[in-house]
């Protein structure tokens, strides 16, 4: 007798836990005619809960040392490397060829490593010491913006997810991500990777469901500071931009069609989700030329 396979229950990921959607609803995306599973159809309340989790995690994550964030990101890559087979399997379930699946998983791991390296370097790239004409020391440094709503790309469900999440959190932001609607399997499995990678709960929150239902809440929530939209639905983009006005969210829209190209390995994705802070302090000039003693 052949053994009966255990099917996986795909749940969402909020605050380091794997709840079912509070709505109790599901949807069944298909590869062709093959159903991929019963996936949580997340509600606006799930999103709300995720934002609370993300906000709660912000101080700790943004306050961690850059070295620490760098190691945590590296750890994600390590965990992913160990579970390559599972991700390839899921990508194939979602319609990829084996070759494409392998390429996507490898590229995803490498991209995480790439951004892990930026955590303790981008600050030096974007900072400045400003030579003001008064007796002050003045410097500008980037700080994470806060909580970010992320619309992961619909295609390339693994590397798309990684290319949007990782640069956002590298600087200390926390995020709520809506996974690819039709190819959500990798996103949830990736949540399991995160959960075992020293990423504090709430830093990355992953929802499954439809953009149609969630985009307005992701754009309008007053405790979300920035928004990362991928895709090219003009109507949706306009709507999102308008909804984002109310608390002046920073809106970044990218059409992720060239996901493998080197341009996605870039600190400028980190720069999109930081705020520049400039600090002034007097310099006592005693004993110096032109001293005012």
């Amino acid at each position: 007798m052949s053994r009966l396979e255990i099917l996986k229950t795909y749940k969402i990921y909020i605050g380091g836990k794997f709840p079912r959607t509070e709505s109790g609803r599901f949807y069944t995306p298909k590869n062709g005619t093959t159903p991929l599973g019963n996936i949580c159809l997340s509600s606006r309340k799930d999103f709300r809960n995720a934002v609370v989790a993300a906000r709660g995690a912000f101080d700790g994550w943004s306050g961690a040392t850059a070295y620490n964030r760098s190691q945590v990101l590296y750890r994600i890559a390590e965990m992913l490397e160990g579970r390559k087979a599972q991700f390839m399997d899921e990508l194939m379930q979602q319609g990829s060829t084996k070759g494409a699946a392998e390429k996507e998983v490898h590229a995803s791991i490498d991209r995480i490593i790439y951004y892990a390296g930026w955590c303790d370097k981008y600050t030096q790239l974007f900072s400045a010491v400003n030579p003001v004409a008064t007796s002050h020391f003045n410097f500008t440094v980037p700080e994470p913006t806060g909580v970010v709503s992320v619309f992961a790309p619909e295609e390339n469900s693994l590397i798309g997810l990684i290319s949007t999440i990782i640069p956002v959190i590298a600087s200390g932001n926390t995020c709520v991500v809506l996974a690819s609607e039709n190819k959500p399997l990798c996103a949830i499995t990736f949540a399991e990777v995160i959960n075992s990678s020293d990423v504090p709960g709430g830093v990355i929150n992953i929802l499954t469901g439809t953009r149609k239902e969630l985009h307005s809440h992701m754009a309008s929530h007053m405790d979300v500071n920035a928004l990362f939209y991928t895709g090219n639905d003009k109507k949706e983009i306009l709507e999102i931009k308008k909804l984002a006005v109310d608390n002046l969210k920073r809106v970044v829209v990218k059409d992720f069609v060239t996901i493998y190209s080197a341009e996605h390995d870039s600190p400028y994705y980190i720069e999109d989700f930081v705020e520049m802070k400039t600090t002034w302090h007097p310099i006592e000039k005693i004993g110096a030329a032109g001293s005012g003693y």
């Binding site: 008064t134 003045n138 520049m276 600090t279 002034w280 302090h281 007097p282």
Partner: peptide, 15 residues
């Protein structure tokens, strides 16, 4: 902008 032990200082070099 954070002014430490000063306030309302401006300079073209300062973002």
């Amino acid at each position: 902008i954070i002014w430490g032990n000063t306030f309302n200082k401006f300079d073209p070099t300062s973002p």
